[in-house]
Design a protein around this nucleic acid. Sequence first.
DNA 1: GATTGATCATAC
DNA 2: GTATGATCAATC
Length: 240
Amino acid sequence: MLQTLRVHHPERHPPPVQSPRSEAELLGRTRAFAGCTLAEVAASAGVALPAEPARAKGFVGTLVERALFVCPKPGAAGPDLAELGIEIKTIPLAAGGQPRESTFVCTLPLGRLEHDTWETSAVRKKLARVLWVPVEHDRALAFGARRLGAAWLWSPSEAEDATLRADWDAVQRLVLRGAVETLDARLGTALQVRPKARHGGMRVRAPGEGEVPTSTMPRGFYLRATFTAAIVRACYPSAQ
DNA sequence: GATTGATCATAC
DNA sequence: GTATGATCAATC
């Protein structure tokens, strides 16, 4: 199962130095890492494993991007690979293939929701094409020993798009009514809204009940694990 | 044990 | 403050 990384032998297999230019190139590049441990991927990318993995929450996602030579523009919104319109998401899977966490999509644009529709939303743009990169997430497994699985490309089906739209519309209605404080993670069947901030004291402006805006905690859109579990079942049969 | 709410790190 | 990348940890 263990595969040798091409980049382990740069003299024989020159590593890529540019962002992938096609879906096939991206997929091939990613699948070369299937079966590799995080320690191996980190070595190939020339980065050290975190001393305290529990405090390095975004490490795996950033590591995979670096290993793939995908370099999103710093500070820029939108998909990781803007030209291909592809978003890269690592997804932590338990031994049985169940996602262990929800998937962050993007910030809830509380101040701009009035001018947004599902069709123009950042959620829809980001989820239009996703490269899912499965990563073992087993408590008994040391951080560096976790392995990547075989990645796959996904786009929402019509039914999935309709579900996401309904959830997104409900959030928009609620926020524009000035009821942002009643918004919590229980709303939405596929897409949910949860806090997304450095600490609990963070505040952003949102529509209030009258003309006056209110101040509230920043939030983000997340895909429920039940939703991504269905995607994994359909697209990643090796996770049975 | 799954879900919700809170938080960690980094760059600009 | 914004964006990127998520997972931790308290609660149900």
